[in-house]
């Protein structure tokens, strides 16, 4: 590091202060909507502007913590998104393996199709999917919705998994094969343990994506007692002429919590490893 300039250089210090100020300003812009959410949730008389609750109260939470408003939609969300994530991750790991390890003629077109499908506007295919689900009696079922949600998450998930798997050197597997392991054993006992930070990224990304998805369950599920949290927040609005902002904020807070917590847990365990760097290099 003989080339590095002294950090005590006054120009350096001035630059650093300027950089920090710029960052704080941007962050201030980002944080205001979040602050509103936090404050309004504890303010029984919350409006749309940020204001300090007086008094702080749990009234909003008391009002919404009922079976119909909160508990059942949350549970439905966990079933739908948990199931969807499981299917997605399993199918992606399996699919990523040949894509990462073998050369075959259809590989490049397949990968390009996958990449294009990541951006596929799901709205565009909801109409035919609705028709298909009615035909085969999957409409308003968890199974059908889980499978479809898993499929919507599959392209990006395969893409990311494949790129993470590329980072695991094939030599390690070849050693396992020499020891008599089959391909799938090699995948399970050599590749997966080495790419678990990548897998965690895929899992969390998938779950957060599905947890936030409201359009798919909104179209595919009909019964009130099957709707997940993402949709019932929407019906929440329709039911009341006058919007009770405090309750909406409290509900939004609870609904956002699983995604936030899951992100925190994983990002802490991963340390700095939460990076799309390897995944988005193309």
């Amino acid at each position: 590091m003989s080339l590095s300039l002294s950090t005590r250089d006054p120009r350096r210090i001035r630059d650093k202060v300027a950089v920090n100020i710029a960052l704080v300003l941007v962050a201030a812009g980002f944080v205001i909507p979040l602050v509103w959410l936090l404050l309004a949730a504890f303010d029984a008389k919350a409006g749309v502007a940020v204001s300090w609750p007086h008094p702080w109260t749990f009234d909003n939470f008391d009002a919404i913590l009922t079976m119909d408003t909160t508990y059942r939609p949350m549970l439905n969300g966990v079933i739908l998104c948990g199931g969807g994530t499981l299917v997605t991750v399993l199918a992606s790991v399996l699919a990523a393996y040949p894509l990462s390890r073998y050369q075959f003629r259809a590989k490049r077109p397949f990968l390009l199709t996958i990449l294009f499908a990541t951006g596929l506007p799901i709205t565009a295919i909801m109409v035919p999917v609705y028709g298909l689900f009615v035909q085969v009696n999957l409409i308003d079922t968890f199974t059908g919705t889980i499978l479809f949600m898993a499929t919507t998450a599959l392209p990006i998930s395969i893409w990311l998994t494949k790129n993470f798997m590329d980072g695991v050197p094939i030599e390690l597997e070849q050693a396992a094969w020499t020891d008599g392991a089959s391909t799938m054993q090699g995948l399970r006992s050599v590749v997966l343990p080495l790419m678990w930070p990548g897998l965690a990224v895929v899992t969390i990304y998938t779950f957060i994506g599905l947890w936030g998805n409201f359009f798919v369950p909104f179209v595919l599920l009909a019964s009130n007692d099957r709707l997940p949290a993402s949709v019932s927040i929407y019906t929440f609005f329709g039911q009341y002429g006058q919007i009770v902002y405090g309750q909406l904020a409290a509900y939004s807070l609870l609904y956002s919590l699983p995604a936030v917590l899951l992100y925190l847990v994983l990002s802490r365990r991963l340390g700095g490893a939460f990076s799309f760097g390897g995944a988005v290099k193309g």
Binding site: V26, A27, F30, V31, I32, P33, L34, W36, L37, A40, G47, V48, A49, V50, I208, W211, G212, N213, F214, S230, I233, Y234, Y245, L248, S252, Y255, S256, A259, V260, Y263
Partner: peptide, 26 residues
């Protein structure tokens, strides 16, 4: 903070910004 905004579900982000930009909003 920036990642917090990203982790928020789409619908919640929509309501947060409806409130933020509203007539009487922040």
């Amino acid at each position: 903070i920036v990642i917090g905004a990203w982790v928020m579900p789409e619908v919640v982000a929509g309501y947060l910004w409806t409130a933020f930009l509203g007539d009487d909003g922040s």
